[in-house]
Design a protein around this nucleic acid. Structure first.
Lengths: 350, 350
DNA sequence: GTGAAAGCGCTAACAA
DNA sequence: TTGTTAGCGCTTTCAC
């Protein structure tokens, strides 16, 4: 392929140096905002940069620097399917990116334990790590340790569940209020004009994502579906055994449950409960996260729809953002937005 | 950040050269399968590569080569919203990637015109272009010109609508049969047990994507919804004016139309028809592609759901694949799979 | 304050 | 058939 490098060729620091009448080293100092350059020289160089429309070649810069990006993911040690998938994606991306000067590691922290999480964050060595992605509850101690990390120049993103009051650079995850609204709309439309009750399964009242989903769900239910009455949340703590016990209890006490919104992890428990409990009319079920289990349930007709977020996308997005932030370059917001995926059995990936 | 490069540091061609006891140039020859190396030397080098687990640093290689990737998109000149969005994404990505040695360009060809498309493909100069992404109908002449391109070492991907019988390297687009099935399931579930007729709007019988959607739609309708009767397709040729005329005609002749599947472009015509035609009970409408118009229709309640493919993803995916193929490196299949997005007004991106 | 020169991992003349 | 060398765009000593 001819490279046809006429006047369109991108300018390099050599061009800047020539135009600004300084050396390469000086251009580099200005580019990287290093001290020890006379102000008038800085001006000259910056003018040349602007005039030529110079954009730094990050690949070449990283090559010269021998730069290696080190990113850490902090995840709940709770090992449900979603977490297993997330960790698999991290490992896979780590293998792919080892050869692109990017290393990913993973730390697990007791689920729903803010103290343990805060300690794990404090244990991060800011001199060894460029960015941290945190999936955990939002509490004051967690916020403080995030602030500490940030103060030491580490990029911080919250993952799956946001910590909006903190100084995190970015939230990588879906809009959980909107996800709850979506579940409600789907459930309501699938049920048509039928009158009845809706059971909601949640994980923990500590988890912001779970709270937000419930919020959105209730909002749309109240607004659009007066024929449906939403019951109090069943707090399953993402524990299949607990959920398996809770569900039949709740449903036996109000027999006209015609819909279930499983808004957190623990689909396994719900499905187990289904095996023993056979009502006359199967309730419409909306669950979260496309996993081997929920796929099977969709296929079998036990679940009617699944709201999901793409694990691979979450991980790639977190890494792209941490990388861009480390280099101080902008991100493509549209690309990083995590979609609220709706899956029926017809549109599941193979 | 300390780079902590102990024994984990990736091996370079220097390491290979040292271990294989040859020069850098010879390693390079073997790596790039260039001729003029004794077979026994090739073996030695390959052994060293395998032993050390060497992986080439593509960024450094591209820097040294001064390599510039040139990719061309061939699109229908029909300028509906979807095409406008697609082209905008191409332009945007081109701006982002100009500084990463990747240039994108765009050619428009009369819509639904296989001859014009085949000519446009033949007009590609294989010595100037590394990859071509084609969005157009599948005909023998198109297949032939794709074969010609491939023979000249150009990577070819089909975009949005596949040309499966050709030698294209990859299809970037969604599974249209599954998309049709999804539309049917959604429409059927939203309608509940109501009896009535369904109108289907299609673009052209030449377009493989449109045909496939209809196929999947009919399959699920026949299987799961005996209460619904699907009418013959209205061929709108993606032309809003034509569609605006067709829809009221069709609906007036069979008044019990309770659902509409708009499977192609031309939502504008459908929405215009809606403005004059006010039935007692508004039909449930499933349309394709999330665009400014369909978003507004979702919000207003004129559309009940939209099946969509992410334009940004389509373009990024096509470019990643053409790039990987030019370099002969593997792709991440999961990342490149185009999702069948379902949008309700609740889960639309802002 | 500023510049010259070596080098990151790889490629491509040109010699040998 | 093989090796030597210069250089891609950028960074980084170390001197001046």
């Amino acid at each position: 392929m001819k490279s046809a490098t006429h006047h369109l060729a991108n300018p390099t620091i050599n061009d800047i140096a020539r135009v600004a009448e300084v050396s390469l080293a000086t251009v580099d100092r200005v580019l990287n905002a290093r001290p020890g350059v006379r102000e008038s020289t800085v001006q000259k160089v910056n003018k040349a940069i602007a005039d030529l429309g110079y954009v730094r070649d990050t690949a070449a810069a990283n090559l010269a620097r021998g730069r290696v990006y080190n990113f850490t993911f902090i995840l709940p040690s709770n090992s449900n399917e979603f977490l297993v998938m997330l960790e698999a994606q991290i490992e896979q991306l780590n293998r792919r990116m080892r050869h692109e000067r990017t290393k990913l590691s993973c730390t697990r922290v007791t689920a729903f334990d803010p103290v343990a999480l805060a300690e794990a964050i404090k244990a991060i060595d800011a001199s060894q790590v460029d960015g941290v992605a945190i999936f955990g509850p939002e509490t004051p101690s967690v916020r403080d340790s995030i602030a500490h990390l940030k103060a030491n120049g580490v990029t911080v993103v919250s993952l799956v569940s946001d910590v909006p009051s903190s100084e995190r650079d970015y939230y990588v995850g879906l809009d959980n209020v909107a996800a709850g609204r979506t579940a409600a709309q789907l459930l309501g439309r699938f049920l048509g004009d039928t009158r009845g009750k809706i059971a909601v399964l949640t994980g923990s009242m500590l988890a912001r994502d779970h709270l937000e989903r419930r919020l959105g769900f209730d909002e749309v239910m109240a607004r659009d579906f007066p024929n449906l009455q939403v019951l109090a949340s069943l707090e399953g703590r993402d524990d299949p055994d607990l959920i398996e016990k809770l569900v039949p209890q709740a449903i036996d006490s109000s027999p006209d449950v015609i819909g279930i919104y499983s808004s957190a992890a623990g689909n396994e428990g719900l499905l187990r409960a289904f095996r023993s409990w056979k009502p006359a009319r199967r309730p419409v079920v909306i669950a979260h996260e496309l996993t081997p289990l929920s796929r099977a349930a969709l296929r079998a007709g036990d679940f009617d729809a699944v709201i999901s977020q793409d694990c691979g996308h979450l991980v790639r997005s977190a890494v792209r953002i941490m990388r861009a932030n480390s280099d101080n370059i902008p991100i493509n917001l549209a690309q990083e937005r995590i979609r609220i995926d709706i899956y029926l059995k017809e549109n599941m990936p193979h």
